[in-house]
Amino acid sequence: MLKVVEINNLTVQYPDVKALDDVSLVVNQGDFLGIIGPNGAGKSTLFASMLGLNTKYKGTIKFFDEDIKKSKNYLKELGYVPQKPIFEKNFPVTVTDVVRMGLRKESDENKIDEILQQLWIHELRDRRIGELSGGQQQRVFIAKALVNNPKILILDEPVTGIDQQSIDLFYSILRELNSKQKITIIWSSHDLDAVNKLANHVACLNRTLFFHGESETFFSDDELVKQYSEASMQEHMHHH
């Protein structure tokens, strides 16, 4: 099986807290990995490190057997959907403009229409991004991530502001991308049920990785699920 991502002993130390502690993780081609963990568990730090946005870490991160500190080539094979794409509400770009930003080769202009159709946002193509609902914006950013035919898709799921219908559509899009187009998906989510239904692998993160394996193993082990839920709950109480 081809290893897409290999993380070894990843540790990220912030001045006041250890955000990640000795995390090791392998993602194989075709995996649909759901990363779950309470707020502040280090999911964002893990993604930032994988995307090359945080370089202050110990350990190694490899994509396609190449250390990302040595080569940035892997970014060409990667699509990223941020949790909260921050922009000014009246920023003068249309849906097409946003998707075009993701396009590496300008000759592939036809690809934009194709991807907009695939994600059911074709009729929105001339609308400004700021006018759209949270769910529509999320699909635009998925389109931008997919427009270069990436082999891996990394998604940070938004916590708020998306209606149920959009969430269902989002999940069915992810399923199709993974099963039909064979895109490896790494997806951070807070929705345990959704991860159970969609992902074939699960990683439970709470600064350290306390479970990583097939989702069946995780979800059939009541003790593990209970432990996870308690840890999340504690964190939740702690935050309030």
């Binding site: 995307l51 946005l53 941020p82 794409p85 922009f87 920023f91 946003v98 930003m101 993701g102």
Partner: peptide, 9 residues
């Protein structure tokens, strides 16, 4: 538009 996303691209 967005520095972080541009960097990743």
């Amino acid at each position: 538009f967005n520095e972080e996303q541009a960097k990743v691209s």
